[in-house]
Design a protein around this nucleic acid. Structure first.
Length: 509
RNA sequence: GCCGCGUUGGUCAAGGGGUUAAGACGCAUCCCUUUCACGGAUGAAUCACGGGUUCGAUUCCCGUACGCGGUACCA
């Protein structure tokens, strides 16, 4: 395995649906590794399964990466010297490699129909072996170029009989490699089935495509999820047969991200109320919408941060990392080998931290978009900036800003009158009437003045400030939340403050 | 079933032959705050089990259990 060549890594998604948390983390680790080593990050579309083509899925992946700020150096979009970057467009190139293997006796043609394969699985199925594989034992009982005569095989081929090319796994050999995360890993070849390399439609399977393309695209390090570990021996063998082990990239298999009960799925998201995809994804067939982290109100900075530390840490107590910090601190050997359960509460904590950490202007710009999406258009930027600064400790998601800021810009829609009604009385009614008269005459409309006047009037009416502060808050805010009530009044201004008090008085009266 | 990979509080995790086994999220209590938060303090809670190796194992080795992944002409 070479270590001196230029670092080139790739993320190779299959465009079949929403982009999963784990997928984004794989992108992130690839990206960090590439940037750290001054290498290239390639996005390769693995669309070899035409039956699973989903319109829009590819474009969606690009949008997710753009949002996350993890854009590739080479891809269908960016271009590059190693294209095409869509495997369906590379179709013609794979067959020769598969046939080369057949010639060398390392692979063979198989003519079994799907029905015959199904029959085989039925026939060989036992309690000890519930899922029989097409392996070194059963291949002798199937219809392939190993069991058929040369003439018969040639005839079938000439007649364009539907067939696949399968790798011929050696018998009882040990295939091993060094995983950058797990160390030595090895497999017995007898236990691995003769994977299909080239499908009947002429498309390669993942197994063939991944090694051919990694070779052709000069990939130096191949990172992928742990679910690929069991098929690694096939890939290693293919490298050995086709391009030489010395040219093989270094492998690292990342741990899986788990949900509350095992493997994380979009169902978990629906069930537990948290996103699983990076961005909103609507299934074009069913029209089903699955919510994304972006729309849920996550900052890309936070999303990246929380993903980075789900399975990796730098050994210090630091938990908050910017992308740049991650680029310099990340290291594959500190990536865990065990899966991590996704904790939505902690995810929200990261977002909250980033809301506090982000530059005020930057935060405000993003809040502005979120408010606009909810139909609240704010044109006074300086005012919004002030308001956002005032309430940001109370928002852990960007979407929380709606409830936390809307009352500054429009009269509260829902008034929590129940919070004041039980203890409401004539004295308080008169008190607020006096407050209105006083505020109308107040020239210095500052929080401190308003508070002092308010308290003086309360004292004169034998009211404790605490008895009337909450009612005032409800009048201005609509509910029991928000920053210091007189700060709110100051920002609302004289006319609006008085108007809201009056309005509520009317409701209570 | 078989194969592979894992296993430190509820969760993320540091650590790695001798430690009072960090820290964070969450939770609880208190302080601050005449709201809700922020912030501060305190607390409950962990080395899956059994054998070795060793003067000494959470740490190394072997089993077992458990979890996860794979077992497709899907990736």
């Amino acid at each position: 395995m070479s270590t001196d060549k230029k670092v080139r890594v790739r993320f190779a998604p299959s465009p079949t649906g929403g982009l999963h948390l784990g997928g984004v983390r794989t992108v992130l680790y690839n990206y960090l590794f590439a940037r750290q080593h001054g290498g290239d990050f390639i996005l390769r579309i693995e669309d070899t399964d035409q039956t699973r083509f989903v319109p829009g899925a590819e474009e969606y992946i690009f949008q997710c990466l753009a949002w996350a700020g993890l854009e590739p150096d080479e891809s269908v979009k960016q271009g590059g010297d190693y294209g095409p970057y869509r495997q369906s467009e590379r179709k013609e190139l794979y067959r020769a490699y598969a046939e080369q293997l057949v010639e060398k006796g390392q692979a063979y043609y198989a003519f079994d129909t799907p029905e015959e394969l199904e029959q085989m699985r039925q026939d060989f199925k036992t309690e000890q072996n519930p899922s029989p594989q097409y392996d070194y034992q059963v291949r002798n009982k199937m219809r392939n170029s190993l069991t058929l005569s040369k003439e018969e095989t040639d005839r079938l081929l000439k007649e364009n009989t539907r067939h696949v090319i399968r790798i011929k796994m050696p018998e009882n050999e040990s295939i091993g490699f060094t995983d950058m995360i797990r160390g030595a890993v090895s497999f017995n070849t007898s236990l691995v089935d003769d994977k299909v390399l080239l499908k009947a439609d002429g498309m390669p399977t993942y197994h063939l495509a991944v090694v051919v393309d990694d070779y052709l695209m000069k990939i130096s390090h191949a990172f992928r999820g742990e679910e690929w570990l069991p098929s690694a021996p096939v890939h290693i063998l293919l490298w050995k047969y086709l391009f030489g082990l010395e040219n093989m990239p270094q492998w690292a298999h990342f741990p899986l991200i788990l949900g509350p009960s095992g493997k994380l799925s979009k169902r978990d998201g629906a069930k537990y109320g948290f996103p699983v995809f990076a961005m909103n994804w609507t299934d074009p067939k069913t029209g089903e919408l699955t919510e994304g982290f972006k729309e849920k109100g996550f900052l890309p900075e936070a999303f990246i941060n929380l993903l980075a530390v789900l399975g990796w840490n730098d050994g210090t107590e630091q938990e908050l990392f910017s992308l740049d910090e991650l680029i310099s601190r990340f290291s594959i050997d500190r990536v865990h080998s065990s899966g991590a359960k996704f904790d939505y509460e902690k995810a929200k904590w990261y977002n909250h931290e980033w809301i506090k950490k982000l530059a005020p202007e930057e935060l405000t710009a993003r809040v502005k978009d979120v408010l606009a999406a909810r139909g609240l258009v704010v044109s006074d930027d300086p005012l919004l900036l002030k308001v956002v600064q005032l309430v940001k400790d109370r928002a852990s998601l960007l979407t929380d800003f709606y409830d936390q800021t809307a009352y500054f810009f429009k009269t509260p829609e829902n008034m929590d009158l129940a919070a004041i009604q039980p203890k409401w009385n004539e004295v308080k009614q008169l008190f607020f009437a006096e407050v209105i008269r006083n505020y109308e005459l107040t020239g210095d409309w500052k929080a401190e003045t308003l508070e002092n006047n308010f308290k003086e009037i309360a004292a004169a009416n034998q009211l404790k400030p605490g008895e009337v502060m909450l009612p005032l808050r409800i009048m201005l805010v609509g509910g029991k939340f928000g920053p210091h009530v007189f700060d709110i009044a100051e920002i609302l201004g004289k006319a609006e403050t008085i108007k809201r008090i009056q309005h509520t008085l009317g409701l209570l009266g």
